[in-house]
């Protein structure tokens, strides 16, 4: 039990709470625009950046973040080139990211254990600098979603209608993708690159069945993510489970409960 009051656990909890807020907040726009898989893609690219960071001895999470943002531009470009087949852009960039990452791994054999911590998350090693980074990203994400709530809603609901209303559709699309890159690259330290898209998508998947309105589905997704993060971290802390995996398994449990509860109820 003492673990719950230790410094590293408190930092983990704070970091987890911040990611539990930002991940579903961005996730809802991604899921509803049929870009659920973008989380995985950006996470894999981030790993390539992290690997480079280790190689050139620069703060890995920041290099990962830069990689993710650059690749988000590439995804957007490809998404427009293959309009209607958005998932193609995602598949291309994802395999590109994995390729670069594994290439860089082989260049610097020595840091494999560190890289593993980014693959599966190592929330207990969350340092003060990491927390500042997560905090900064949270402020940016919150500000954008609050300021552009109306525009993001219309864009997500129907891109053509948003364009006919004179909204800067390209810019808004870019904004969502860049924010996704920021959230994902900071979240991988917490749940791990392989699991990050769960935090983006599963809370939203639950809320699609439960929420009566768009506003409510945002609130619900955040609540569900926060419950999973808090309970997951405490359970993992007490019984010494892998924190990232515990959080994701809890999310899946909540999704199953939602589906059972809404059985026979089609929206």
């Amino acid at each position: 039990m003492e673990i719950l009051f230790s410094d590293f656990f408190q930092r983990a909890l704070l970091g987890g709470l911040l990611i539990g807020l930002t991940a579903p907040l961005i996730g809802i726009f991604l899921v509803l625009r049929r870009l659920s898989m973008i989380g995985d893609t950006l996470a894999h690219v981030t790993i390539a950046g992290v690997a480079l960071g280790f190689l050139i001895n620069v703060y890995p999470l920041v290099v990962g973040l830069v990689f993710a943002v650059i690749s988000s531009f590439a995804i957007e470009k490809l998404r427009r080139a293959y309009k209607g087949y958005a998932e193609l852009s995602i598949a291309v960039i994802m395999s590109g990211g994995v390729a670069v990452a594994s290439f860089l791994f082989t260049l610097g054999q020595g840091y494999n254990t560190d890289v593993t911590s980014y693959l599966f998350g190592s929330i207990y090693t969350l340092g003060r600098t990491d927390l500042y980074l997560v905090g900064g990203v949270t402020v940016v994400v919150l500000a954008v979603v609050v300021f552009f709530y109306k525009e993001l809603f219309l864009l997500t609901f129907e891109e053509d209608a948003a364009a006919v209303s004179g909204l800067p559709v390209k810019l808004l699309n870019m904004l969502i993708t860049v924010l996704a890159a920021l959230v994902i690259s900071t979240a991988i330290k917490i749940v791990g690159a392989l699991l990050v898209s769960a935090l983006l998508t599963i809370p939203v998947a639950c809320s699609l069945f439960l929420a009566k309105s768009f506003r409510m589905s945002i609130v619900l997704s955040v609540v569900i993510a926060e419950i999973a993060v808090i309970v997951g971290l405490i359970v993992a802390g007490i019984w010494n489970f892998a924190p990232g995996a515990t959080i994701v398994l809890l999310l899946i449990l909540m999704l199953l409960l939602t589906l059972v509860a809404c059985r026979g109820y089609t929206v």
Binding site: L154, E158, A162, K212, F214, M216
Partner: peptide, 29 residues
């Protein structure tokens, strides 16, 4: 738009959809 552009699972109310007609280039910010 064409009706089939709509995804049936989209979690928005009629009120939210109708209001979105007011969101134009002039209402940003």
């Amino acid at each position: 738009p064409q009706k089939n552009a709509l995804n049936m699972l989209f979690p928005a109310t009629v009120r939210e959809v109708v209001t979105s007609g007011l969101f134009t280039n002039k209402s940003i910010f």
